[in-house]
Nucleic acid binder design. Structure first.
Lengths: 229, 229, 229, 229
DNA sequence: CATGAATGAGTCTTCATTCAT
DNA sequence: TATGAATGAAGACTCATTCAT
């Protein structure tokens, strides 16, 4: 699932603590290099999860640079050194987190999109679902945004992947005859930007509109535009 | 014009070195408190400008956290201590810079918008102008984005102001009968998000479309939407 | 015993390494807040003691402002950063030291005073003991004196406490009928001043009189005064 | 009068601004080396005085190390660089000040002592006068005390001179048959210590006794001692 | 004489990372 | 695995002093 970097305990591996498909992933990880930091015991998996949750909370609240390893370990209730049992560096947890959040967003939004009757409804459902998610996980916004400065690769990958998925959907909708799109990539980035900033404004900064309201208005915009008549 | 913080050498003051309208602002600033760091001599104004330019270049290239004061002063060709003759901290130059860039973007785009025949054309011209500006000043993008983590107030102010200006234009266009807008604020943020991400994708990350192409496609989107017919 | 400031490794804790009565205090300190810098291992306690001893020597020799953290850590044989494992700042060691020295002086002098047959003999024994102590620990003088500028609270507390103890003794002696005192507080400060300056002159600056000689002369002064007859 | 160090503007020279005997001193100073910083114009003398007064106030209030040259020049209302027109270093003003204050104390107390009928009365009058002076010039206390760490020579000279003067008076009183003194130097330091600490307690820290009360009690102590009968 | 911009050595402090127990 | 003491490179900031105008 989530990509891995050599020797680092991965979020996928941590999912192993709660998910059924985890055994496979864990085994896979275990088959990795000598520097593998995947936990082998139940106790280890629990600790790893605690560290990851703490890291998400701290990075979300104070940002990458103002978060110290001690902040994370103290919140997780483990000793400082324990951190390095699971991660090789501060950047590494951050990377793991960005991938995890990126996947979480996608997985949360996907079902809503899949259930939509047509291309337009899909975008609307996707945005509404996204807004709801952002409100519930404000720290995600921050972490992904900060990736631009901490781990540019993850940052670009996240937005490139998101845009690609939108473009894919638009392409299908066009082929089905639902929509007419001049340039799928340009339009995909435009829609994504719209969604992201609406998430910022109506998910993170304020909540003076319901997700459905916002999604409805935005959807009308991309459906028929602003020109009267 | 640009807001000031007590005791800090301001960009407004530095503008005085090149702009005619600045004299007023500079005088105003000079009338400030005793701990004022506004330069009182021509030599001082020149040095301040050198430091600001160097800071913009360095922050743009390496980011806030990876830029040291020495990077800035070395590039500016002054001694380390000279930095503190004009700014009280690293954060302070950054803040000054964000405000400066925010104003630069606005001032660069404004004429193009003003010259447009109608509301829709205004948005198109604005986006095209913005894309051109971003390509020429890629560091601005990074600096404003990083403000989210270094100086959240400036960051929010920048985007709020930008959205407000768009909303204002949309409102006028609607009153004139050009456009029909369901919710000016939501639409303004949507359009801004579109623009920002198109700037990121086709201004900073790649240049596989001309500003006019991108602006045309985006403009068609907000004009008529994607629905065929 | 020695007062504590939140989160700082205390001298009381370090006393735990050498004194039997200290265990209680150490346990108490250990029960403190989470940011507590009290060492939890034997190795830690040893290091803390090394730093304190080094700090006393360096501050005594070069003074607070001319002593760098590196001077202390180098003398203590630990790395620079180790200092901050036990103290939050240079001021903090200094404070700890002043309290420690204040207590040391008191504890050194107390037995001599307790063993004296009457009030007058007590002051004499106390002064003689003090002079001996000062000669053996000249740095204490300097550290306590410099506290006036580095940590005024400790400085005043030290002299106020000392004067209070003298006043207490004088009060008892008067009640017993040994002495007749016009104003206990004034007299206590007068005697303390006498002792301190005799310590400066015949303990720190020169040793051209024995402690007993000096104490004898001073005691005669406060016993019968200078008026002949 | 006040001693001079090569090339430094002296307090004696500054006195020249207001005293009649000054011309002589100024001429003397002018006859000094090439690095002489004695002001030659009336304007210069005024500036020098402003700097000295500001320095006394600042050193007294914040202490030597926490006082910057800018604090002094700002309070004096002159530019930073002007300081170095009159002094070669921060230490130098401080030294000049210590000598000045030392002389001021002496000169203030001397008349009261001279007017006393006998040795004992002289000490009493001297202490009362000293206490009054300390109350009016609390900063003096601090400056002289801090000299121990900034300029040990001045510090020792001040107290040695003071003790010497006391010893001289005691010697005379003894020769006249007023008093009987076992060891003039020891007693002189004892009395000085008393006076200094009474000045600290009842001049600087609190004023819950009048100078005369304190002087009376202290005088009774050194006159007849504490032994009843 | 006065001014204030420029200088840069010096210091404290932080914190990611290592490692012995 | 877990712990927490130890490490030291790195970096922001201060401030006495110099000097050209």
């Amino acid at each position: 699932m989530a990509g891995r970097r050599s020797g680092a305990a991965t979020v996928a591996a941590s999912d192993a603590a709660s998910g059924p498909a985890a055994d496979g992933a864990a085994a896979e990880a275990a088959a990795g290099g000598a520097t593998d930091k995947t936990p082998r015991t139940a106790r280890g998996r629990k600790t790893l999860r605690a560290i990851l949750d703490a890291a998400a909370a701290e990075f979300g609240a104070r940002g990458f640079h103002d978060t110290g390893i001690t902040h994370i370990t103290q919140r997780a209730g483990v000793a400082l050194g324990t951190f390095y049992t699971y991660f090789n560096s501060k950047e590494e947890v951050f990377r793991a987190l960005v991938r995890d959040m990126s996947a979480q967003v996608r997985d949360h939004v996907a079902p809503a999109i899949a259930a939509a009757p047509d291309g337009l409804a899909a975008e609307r459902a996707g945005l509404a679902s996204f807004l709801g998610f952002v409100r519930a996980h404000k720290e995600i916004y921050r972490i992904i945004d900060e990736a631009e400065f901490v781990d540019p690769d993850s940052y670009r990958a996240h937005y490139q992947n998101t845009a690609d998925r939108i473009a894919l959907r638009l392409g299908e909708a066009e082929r089905r005859g639902d929509l007419s799109i001049a340039d799928t990539e340009v339009v995909a980035w435009a829609i994504m930007g719209m969604n992201v900033f609406l998430g910022l404004r109506f998910g993170v900064l304020g909540d003076d509109r319901t997700p459905d309201e916002v999604a409805g208005i935005a959807n009308a915009l991309i459906a028929r535009g602003l020109v009267r008549g």
